[in-house]
Amino acid sequence: MLTFEEMWQRIIECDRKYDGLFFTAVKTTKIYCRPSCRSRKPKKVNVEFYDQIGKVEEAGYRACKRCQPEVEHSPQVAIVKNVVTFLVNNYKQHLQLKDLAEEVGVSPFYLERVFKQETGETPRMYLEKIRIDKAAYLLKSTKLTNLEICFEVGFQSSSNFYKIFKNIKSCSPSEYRKGLHYELDGS
């Protein structure tokens, strides 16, 4: 059980680890939020805390449209899931952040921030990993040349392909094809 002061500190810090454990209700606006909500912080005297969503709604509060506390997961999870699906289905295309943002209906800045917050990677890094995974599969299962694979998986330049491949797989594409790779994940 957290004290009022502990819960207040969590909302000041926008601490996501406490989402779902309690809800912040603002008496003056009659809105309730998650602890991680990024909306402007209310005055301390105008705040009440509830440990259950049913209780806060019974008290007459409505859900914040920004943090959507009534939704089981963070609202950003849906955005990230849609971007990942789009990347997996379109990895061969020349994609830019603005294209991804347009696809999910948010600004490029917001998308990059949310994506990194949820996955620990930028959309570009995630796309590169998808492309390298596809390239690794093609290296092992086809007779395509390294250069053909480079363009097949969506890279625009061979130097970038080789650099990123080596960075992710810790070996060159040729070494990977010959089985001279030792990855931590066991592949």
Rank of each mutant, 00 (worst) to 15 (best):
R131H: 00
C171N: 00
E6Q: 12
Y182K: 14
I12A: 07
E103M: 12
K81N: 07
F165K: 06
D99Y: 06
E48Y: 01
T145Y: 11
R66M: 11
V45E: 15
K163D: 03
E72N: 10
L184T: 12
Y32A: 02
Q96M: 07
V84F: 00
A135Q: 02
Q93S: 15
Q52R: 13
K98V: 14
I12L: 15
E112N: 14
E102V: 04
V153C: 01
N146V: 14
I149C: 12
K17D: 07
E58M: 07
S187I: 14
K116T: 09
W8C: 06
T119M: 05
C14D: 09
F151I: 05
G186P: 01
N82I: 00
N90Q: 00
R124Y: 05
R62Y: 07
S187R: 13
T122Y: 00
S39F: 00
H94R: 15
I31M: 09
V83T: 06
S172Q: 08
R38Y: 11
L100K: 02
C14R: 15
E128M: 05
L180F: 08
V71T: 13
Y32E: 05
V56S: 01
K163T: 10
E48N: 12
I149P: 07
M1Y: 10
L100H: 05
D133Q: 12
D133H: 13
V56T: 10
G20I: 07
K27V: 06
R16Y: 11
K178R: 15
R62K: 15
E5N: 14
F4C: 03
L180G: 08
T142N: 11
F165E: 01
Q93A: 14
C150P: 06
M1H: 10
E102F: 09
E175H: 08
R40E: 13
V80K: 06
S141R: 10
K178L: 09
Q76V: 05
E72P: 04
L139N: 08
H181G: 02
M125R: 06
G154E: 03
R38T: 13
I164T: 08
T29H: 04
Y162R: 10
N146H: 06
H73K: 13
F23E: 01
R40D: 11
Y18T: 01
K98L: 03
Q96S: 08
